[in-house]
């Protein structure tokens, strides 16, 4: 059984169709990526899963239970977290405070502490800078903080919205190697990227989203070698 199953999801923003009935699934321990151009509906998909935008029709099930219509809090409580686009760290709070907010729904102090240690292991840089205001961290560090903050909720499924946005190639490489490590630790990853090249190399499977519809699907390798993908997303000239 798949961990996350999305059936005919349709979302409209005041008459404009953002998602026109998409269906896909994410199995446990997978890295799945949705790639597509600007305005294809990638972020909308994640926001709909989190219950942050109302959906028109369709269903979202997690572990076989329907989760559409639930409050965001409940969805986070079930183990799905979102690393929002553009990092969105709490700029005037310290790194440590940011991380603690990630564990907001957690009540067990010992578990919070052990999650914190795990995050510090993954991102030693965050430990060094735990007292620093998040707004003064570099872009890459802020992205690490955003991911670390999401991991503090001890998620089963982590969804990332454009983790490579605005980062230097070396930093992107580092972030993606961390994504693989998170996945190896047992967390399922749903990844949204414009940077199709890295995303497909990292992911087990990929879906291509075009103006609200899924037009192609396959394993990461298959999509990488597909001529149409190469032309449209990987910058190969005709």
């Amino acid at each position: 059984m798949s961990l996350l199953h999305i059936q005919d999801l349709r979302v409209c923003y005041g008459g404009i169709v953002a998602l026109d009935g998409i269906s896909f699934e994410v199995a446990e321990h997978e890295i799945v990526t949705l790639i597509g151009a600007n305005g294809a509906g990638k972020s909308t998909t994640l926001r709909a899963i989190m219950g942050l935008v109302p959906m028109e029709s369709g269903s979202i099930s997690y572990h076989g239970d329907k989760i559409n219509g639930l409050d965001t809090q409940k969805i986070v409580g079930k183990g799905i977290v979102l690393v929002p686009e553009g990092r969105r760290v709490f700029a005037n709070l310290t790194t440590l405070e940011n991380l603690k907010l990630g564990a907001y729904l957690q009540s067990d102090k010992e578990e919070i502490e052990s999650n914190l240690n795990r995050v510090y292991e993954l991102f030693p840089r965050l430990k060094e800078r735990h007292w620093q205001m998040a707004g003064t961290l570099s872009g890459g560090e802020q992205q690490m903080l955003a991911v670390g903050r999401a991991l503090m909720a001890a998620p089963k499924l982590i969804m990332m919205d454009e983790p490579s946005l605005g980062l230097a190639p070396l930093v992107v490489k580092e972030i993606f190697s961390i994504i693989r490590r998170i996945n190896e630790a047992g967390v399922t990853v749903l990844l949204i990227e414009q940077n199709a090249n890295v995303a497909l190399k990292t992911a087990n499977r990929g879906y291509v989203l075009e103006t609200g519809r899924i037009t192609m699907t396959g394993s990461g390798q298959q999509l990488l070698s597909d001529e149409r993908i190469k032309v449209a997303y990987l910058g190969k000239s005709r």
């Binding site: 969105r88 760290v89 709490f90 907001y104 729904l105």
Partner: peptide
């Protein structure tokens, strides 16, 4: 702490599960 998170960024706060 949740109040501060809301002040800093409502969307991120909501994604953290803060009502």
């Amino acid at each position: 702490r949740a109040f501060l998170a809301i002040r800093e960024d409502e969307i991120a706060a909501e994604a953290m599960g803060i009502s």
